[in-house]
Design a protein around this nucleic acid. Structure first.
Lengths: 189, 189
DNA sequence: CTAGTTTCCTTAAAGGTATTAAGCAAATGA
DNA sequence: TCATTTGCTTAATACCTTTAAGGAAACTAG
């Protein structure tokens, strides 16, 4: 029997692709084994178990998302930076729904690489440099931005905006206008 | 063998409670059957399948959430209404994480009762009556509010705010201040 | 170039899940 | 009290995860 040339990285990448196709929840050891023309048990030489595999996909997604956001952010400031970051975030989630789902589901898992999370926080703070916010307002604003981005993308993906004819793109754009406005004019405590 | 007295409603309620305890993803036909002291196959007389059971839990959660939000909203206007609604939303999600997860996951399912979703939308519009927004700004604002609420609760539940010492309650309160501010001063297109 | 070792996959097996079909026993009602 | 309906069990199929043990292929020495 010829060898399939599996590695943890290749399995992770394939699992991520599979997640984007059939949904993160449907990514299974068996399905992945079929993809590699191999028996399920063979995967356990490269990956601890299903939980581990999922954590790896989550880590991959967080890293990719951070990379995209970082390059979108490069050389921009103020509202430009805000919009570029937000659009990169949303585009990634729409392009890679399975990866995005993985990134969310596993925030609490200790198995996960924290570095990507730290990068996200740093980038969001970088956006805020264009606005005049001191602590603890800055932390509050970071949380609000992240919440709005994640919430919007999450609801949009779940089909929450399909009942109303207004384009999701238009509301997104206006939401970013509103965020910019409130960051420029952050209410006093 | 004594009868367990199962009905679709009781199963749904028990499944919802179970979801709050062990997580929505871990709610299984077998676990529910164990809870009722019954073989798994027995449930199929009352519920079509696992998918159906989950949709019922989602529907229950959406209705409960809408009820809570409605009573929180009663007799309030302006920022009072916004804060009351938001707090009711967040409190429900924290109190019933399994139910809340169910409510999100199944937005696209056709099997679900749409009435609860409509009620949510109507209530959010009711909040906006205290602010001066015409269409399509109103729809955009509804989407932004919902996104922020869901995103915040979702990230908080997943542990996304635990890395920073700032209290999640405080950031939540300030986020509501910011939303109020931006609704009062919605940016022009 | 061949023998030993390591590496990677397979087979085998145990246990969990969903789901359907058939059967039996308890409640219902004529 | 008998017949019917209702509600559960048993049985069977078909997945899934995961561990343990075995074999073949690819390396590594001599």
């Amino acid at each position: 029997m010829a060898r399939a040339g599996m590695t943890a990285e290749r399995l992770t990448r394939a699992a991520a692709d599979l997640a984007d196709e059939i949904g993160f929840a449907n990514v299974t050891v068996s399905a992945l084994a079929r993809l590699f023309g191999v028996k399920p048990a063979a995967l356990y030489a490269h990956v601890k178990d299903l939980r581990d595999l999922r954590a790896r996909v989550a880590s991959l997604a967080l890293t990719e998302l951070a990379d995209r956001a970082a390059s979108a952010l490069a050389g921009r400031a103020g509202k430009d930076a805000l919009v570029a970051f937000a659009n990169a975030y949303r585009a990634y989630a729409k392009e890679h729904p399975g990866r995005y789902a993985a990134a969310q589901l596993e925030l609490d898992s200790e198995a996960i690489d924290v570095s990507a999370g730290v990068r996200h926080a740093e980038m969001t703070r970088a956006i805020l440099r264009g606005y005049d916010l001191a602590e603890p307002d800055q932390t509050d604003a970071v949380r609000m931005l992240h919440s709005t981005f994640h919430g919007y993308v999450s609801l949009e993906t779940a089909g929450g905006f399909r009942r109303h004819p207004r384009e999701a793109d238009a509301s997104w754009s206006r939401t970013l206008d509103a965020l910019d406005a409130v960051l420029r004019n952050w209410p006093p405590a």
